[in-house]
Design a protein around this nucleic acid. Structure first.
Length: 595
RNA sequence: GCCCACAUAGCUCAGUCGGUAGAGCACACCCUUGGUAAGGGUGAGGUCACGGGUUCAAGUCCCGUUGUGGGCUCCA
């Protein structure tokens, strides 16, 4: 999995620091709880963690104390010493540590490393010691704890985690820490966390009145308020138009379908745990759709298809319902009912290459139009269990790879990470805080064409099976909106701002003029409101700015006199008075350029 | 689903040792008509998530349920 990056990270000093701090933390915890059973503690993105089996639950005060003790240990200038040992020696050393013994068994048998990941070769067994603490570990570590800056790490949280990630196993206590080379880096990281909190879409969703979730309706079900819905409508309209211009045909399909459909599609076999219980309609079972594919397939199958009419590209904003376990729901990014900007492409084998390339190109175009610029692709290839012809898999995978390379996207290959029905590209987006979000996906499907017996009549008059590609670009409207909110911190580009202009009359006598300006701007297609409250101008500015409204137009005696407006921007910039016509030109330019 | 924490006015929160509920913002009304990030006053607004229990007495202690948050696992 994602080998390229992982290996690079493993070679860095930061990786060694984090890995070493995990050991130091384990020492501090074991000192605090001599009966503690310790398990594994790897470096991760931004830091490290270690999982413990402890006699009681940790409190925030415990964390402080552990952190304090860690500083002392780090400052003790202890050397990290590696030693290769036999399995027997290792068992002796860790005789009171059942989790370690389990790991040693795995190492001895080969096939698994100390984190339980599959391994090609049988590894040597090594231990690392610093100060009084010995851990089963293959390293690498710093030479000496003096290489660790005692003021560049911090323990962040305690959370439950299953032994080896399996929910059938015991729940352990995981302590997360973050660690850096310098204090500045630590502070920068902590700032980023704060900033992420400030732009949390759940918080902004409330403050900007964009959406809500109601207990009465149910968890994971989103209510789009007028302002949020307006953004969605704008995004949908833009994207729908682009689809129609790019050779897609728009379709609509129902939200439920007969059990038989889902049996044929196989969803009742391999996807049932994500589907809701059926409803009874005149003695027949119907299911809410977890995917749109079977419906688009029915449209394809509604008559005989000629090779001449391929490719067929059916697009729909398809609302699907999937059962997600209560613990995984999260704001807009993980919900139970959501709308995908879905499409299915049915094409001839000789069209695959171009269709993939087009789909990727189109995806990048749409995402860039939304103000997202930083992408990374993940190519997932054939897993061990798969359906279809390996030759088709290879052809499809190569088409995906060439498309990525043709677009000069950075990418990683997830060998064997594809679904059983086909290889795929996932496109992840890095937002303004450099956080990665998965949005687009382009997947081949070698399963459904077979199951539904899809055909087209080839040039020679014989039926052939088409290739089928499933793709979503924004992913889901809910998740995309969540990402959009966080990326822009709620300050959407002008073309997507629910309210683009707030007119701020200074005194009541300017109200008529303010309304007149509003009318003129509306006639130009701008979304305008007048703040006619009996508040001071300062308060109105503050409120408009907090609502992230792109343009504030202050109008008072001078503006009325000169048929002008005084412009203020939401970033605090103050271009000042200008003729109304000049403002209109400026706004229209910003909108056209998607600023 | 599992581990931990949390749930008080529309929002953000306070509420000590168990003694019967508070602030700011928002809202309504009144005064104020102010030139680039909060003018002043008055008022209305709460089954303290829900259901049990302990107690003379529960927002506060205990149990359960629901929801939310941080994780685990999974994913658009």
């Amino acid at each position: 999995m994602v080998q390229q990056i992982k290996e690079k990270y493993e070679e860095t000093q930061l990786y060694r620091i984090r890995h070493s701090l995990a050991h130091v933390m384990a020492q501090a915890v074991v000192e605090m709880f001599p009966e503690a059973k310790y398990t594994i503690g790897p470096p991760i993105e931004n830091g490290f963690y270690y999982d413990f089996d402890l006699p009681r639950n940790l409190t925030p005060e415990d964390l402080e104390q552990i952190e304090k003790r860690m500083r002392q240990i780090v400052q003790g200038k202890h050397e990290f010493k590696k030693k290769v040992v036999s399995a027997e020696e290792a068992r002796q050393i860790f005789k009171d540590q059942p989790y370690k013994l389990e790991l040693i068994d795995g190492l001895e048998k080969g096939g698994f490393d100390e984190y339980g990941n599959p391994l090609a070769e049988k590894p040597e067994i090594s231990i690392y010691q610093h100060d009084t603490f010995i851990d089963l570990c293959r390293g690498p570590h710093v030479q000496n704890t003096s290489e660790i800056n005692p003021n560049a790490f911090k323990l962040m949280s305690v959370a439950g985690a299953y032994w080896r990630g399996d929910e059938k196993n015991k729940m352990l206590q995981r302590i997360y820490g973050t660690a850096w080379e310098t204090t500045e880096q630590l502070e920068q990281y902590l700032w980023k966390l704060e900033e992420a909190k400030r732009r949390d879409h759940r918080k902004l969703g409330k403050e900007l009145d964009l959406f809500s979730v109601s207990d009465e309706v149910g968890p994971g079900l989103i209510l789009w308020h007028p302002k949020g819905a307006l953004v969605r409508v704008l995004v949908e309209d833009f994207s729908r138009k682009a689809h129609l211009e790019n050779g897609y045909e728009w379709v609509f399909s129902p939200h439920i379908g007969r059990a038989h459909l889902w049996e044929v599609s196989g969803h009742l076999g391999f996807y049932k745990e994500n589907m809701y219980s059926p409803m009874d309609i005149e003695g027949e079972a119907y299911y809410a759709k977890p995917m749109n594919c079977p419906f688009h397939i029915q449209i394809y199958k509604s008559r005989i298809r000629s090779y001449r009419e391929l490719p067929k590209r059916y697009a729909e904003y398809g609302t699907v319902y999937r059962y997600e376990r209560s613990g995984v729901l999260h704001g807009l990014t993980r919900v139970r009912g959501f709308t995908q900007d879905d499409a299915h492409i049915f094409c001839r084998p000789d069209q695959v290459e171009e269709e993939i390339s087009r789909a990727l190109e189109f995806s990048l175009y749409i995402l860039r139009s939304m103000g997202l610029k930083d992408f990374k692709a993940y190519l997932s290839t054939r897993p061990e269990k798969y359906v279809g012809d390996p030759a088709d898999w290879d052809k499809a995978t190569e088409a995906l790879r060439r498309a990525i390379e043709a677009h000069a996207l950075p990418y990683e290959v997830d060998e064997g990470g594809g679904a059983f029905y086909g290889p795929k590209i996932d496109l992840k987006v890095n937002d303004a805080l450099d956080r990665e979000w998965q949005l687009s996906t382009i997947q081949f499907d070698f399963n459904l064409p077979e199951r539904f017996g899809l055909e087209f009549i080839a040039e020679d008059g014989q039926p052939r099976r088409p290739y089928m590609v499933h793709r979503a670009l924004l992913g889901s409207m809910e998740r995309f909106f969540g990402v959009l909110i966080e990326h822009f911190a709620g300050a959407f580009p002008v073309w997507l701002s629910p309210v683009q202009v707030m007119i701020i009359p200074i005194a009541d006598r300017h109200l008529d003029y303010a309304r007149e300006v509003a009318q003129k701007l509306r006639a130009e297609g701008l979304r305008v409101e007048v703040d006619d409250r009996s508040e001071r101008m300062n308060a109105k500015i503050r409120d408009a700015q907090n609502q992230k409204i792109p343009y504030m137009l202050v109008v008072g005696d001078k503006e009325v006199e000169a048929n002008a407006v005084a412009l203020r921007l939401r970033n605090g910039e103050n271009p000042g008075p200008m003729p109304l016509t000049e403002f209109i030109a400026r706004a229209k330019k910003d909108i056209a350029e998607k600023n």
